[in-house]
Design a protein around this nucleic acid. Structure first.
Lengths: 355, 355
DNA sequence: TCACTCTATCGAATCGATTCGATGATCGTT
DNA sequence: AACGATCATCGAATCGATTCGATAGAGTGA
């Protein structure tokens, strides 16, 4: 084989007897090159097995690598067991892939949420997407600012130089809560997503609540209280069915008089867990207890029930993020975007049981 | 602000009154630089807001970008609704992240499975992982070969220059089938993963079977037949619960005399669908019909049943892939790896009903 | 035939770092 | 005091392409 050394643009140019700059023109698809020359260069490339200009060298000049980072708060298994995260990234790639831009996963691990500087520093990045709501004091943010890497954040963290894409979490949850209130519910418990990623679960104290890390978690809690006033929050350690079930068992395994008549989970995944808990405790839904979620994801294993939830356009959110990235790559500064949500009433909420 | 122009190594060196080469030594953490000089350079960098050497320029010299591509056959939403894919990538990142190497998603879309050349050609890649079993005639493969990008493939596609990581699909399925045979099952149906990604579902003809695209699908079918001889295959369009349910409804909604006494699904996800179908048809598992899967993934919503399945060490498989990539990056050529599987008997298989 | 306009091609600078062989300073030894 | 060894620092070449201003040659019109 002739694998002495991989051919470069210069090799190809020499073989085609043109200047490297001309060969470059050919590969960049320029019009200003004679068809005969173009063919000669292409033929030379084919003979040498040249695969096209080296992406790295190209990036150096063009200041563009075709790589956009996706910051994932946790380990992939946790993050991607959440259909919301997956759908979101799906929307992002749908927009970016045709542009030849790829998504680079930047997951955290069990301890840290978010990538280490070692992960960030060595990798070329045209932009970064905070795919799941990130904390506002992420040290990676500072590094990215220095490198002047544009940032798009879903649901947070915020910042002057960060483009935000979100939904009205508070208003959506309030609407859902109003639906419950109209059904007569007054004793409502909230099963919350993690307030911080430190593995804590259980009832949320006022002081912990003051230190909530994630905007969406805070807003969704406030939405409930806008309608009903202060309600108890039960924090989960991760967004997982099993965590929701665990919370549900604690909240529901009490005398009927103390039991909440409705449980608002901050995600559909958690709500699914609460449903399981109710089932295992022999409680009927919605006769004994109503359950609601947030997100509107498709859980093919959930039927026959249809979850009452706040539907957010997750894939579209991803597309909007993708378009925002496109704008940033073009040097423009897109405006923040807030997409709409709507209440979807299913079969898991009904009139509050009489006291 | 002093955002005239982003500082480079040369700027920093000038400010610290040293040569660029010396400044480079400082950032590469070399020992051979006087502490005083180091401090001066670091101070200059801090004053200028220099974030460290540009990854792209560094890559150009070092021939290493810190980016490894992950080829995903389908859209992310489909691929990542499969816990196997997610766990696998989780294992890969677990090994690669600490090395400062990131995973770049290269998904296909509805039509094509696998990334386009446009996606591949513009992006720097040190190596590529075929995360889900890819077809053997993928045009992207040819491009990657030309670029001399090392490839690790999970379960396929094969090739001289491709490092393979897999499990004994055939033997594992055979072991499972023997378990069923020992329980008296003779009429067994197989719910197969897609043989090709063209959306086909239904009974598999001999000619279609001859053109199966994926090694693991073929092997798992053969494993059943090693024990029982020819069995009917029912193909699904995607690896999804709903697809499994659809297949299950067709296969099981017949008179008891014609009904298979056991269904072997080629994935746990499909098996979960078959279980749902059985439930909706009023069939008891395992009294009326036994159901088995493959993978051994954790489906938190599946309890109280425990699926009989062939457990493969998916996360470990990912780690092995990660290590193989590490070897390749170091210029070595690791050997192919075959990890072990084992049968896990749950509550979904039992003695065949008497005829 | 001469000046002039196009247009295809070329040369050289540039992107931002790394790397290695060369250089000069410092120190110890005899 | 002179010489060699050691060590920190420097210069220059290099990685592989892109880009823009320069140039030569073909084509047009008078």
């Amino acid at each position: 084989m002739s694998d002495r050394t991989r051919p470069t643009l210069a090799t190809v140019a020499a073989r085609a007897e043109v200047a490297p700059s001309t060969a470059s023109l050919v590969f960049s698809g320029s019009e200003r090159v004679a068809p005969a020359t173009r063919d000669r260069v292409l033929a030379a490339a084919a003979e040498l097995g040249y695969a096209g200009p080296d992406p790295v060298a190209r990036s150096l000049r063009s200041r563009r690598s075709g790589v956009v980072g996706a910051v994932i708060g946790e380990r992939l298994t946790y993050a991607f067991s959440d259909p919301v995260a997956v759908q979101l990234l799906d929307g992002v790639t749908e927009v970016l892939s045709p542009l030849g831009v790829g998504l680079l996963l930047l997951p955290g691990d069990a301890d840290r949420h978010g990538p280490t500087l070692a992960q960030l520093a060595h990798v070329p990045l045209d932009a970064v997407v905070y795919a799941t709501c990130g904390p506002e004091d992420d040290p990676a943010l500072e590094h990215l600012r220095r490198r002047e890497v544009p940032i798009v954040a879903v649901d947070g963290p915020g910042g002057d130089d960060v483009v935000l894409v979100g939904v009205p979490d508070r208003r959506g949850t309030a609407e859902l809560t109003r639906h419950l209130a109209d059904l007569g519910h007054r004793r409502v418990a909230v099963v919350a997503l993690p307030l911080r990623l430190d593995g804590t679960r259980g009832p949320v104290t006022a002081e912990r609540r003051a230190r909530v890390h994630f905007r969406d978690v805070r807003e969704r809690a406030l939405g409930v209280e806008d309608v009903l006033g202060p309600v108890p929050l039960w924090e989960t350690a991760t967004n997982a069915v099993e965590e929701g079930a665990r919370a549900g068992r604690v909240l529901l395994d009490v005398s009927a008089a103390d039991r909440p008549t409705a449980v608002v989970a901050q995600s559909d995944i958690l709500a699914a867990g609460v449903l399981r808990a109710a089932e295992s405790l022999g409680l009927r839904v919605p006769e004994d207890v109503s359950v609601a979620g947030f997100d509107g994801v498709d859980l093919p294993w959930l039927p026959p029930v249809r979850l009452t939830t706040v539907v957010q356009p997750t894939t579209e959110k991803g597309r909007v993020v993708g378009r925002a990235v496109t704008e940033l790559l073009a040097g423009r500064r897109p405006a923040d975007a807030v997409l709409d949500v709507h209440l979807s009433v299913g079969t898991t909420t009904g009139p509050a049981p009489r006291a």
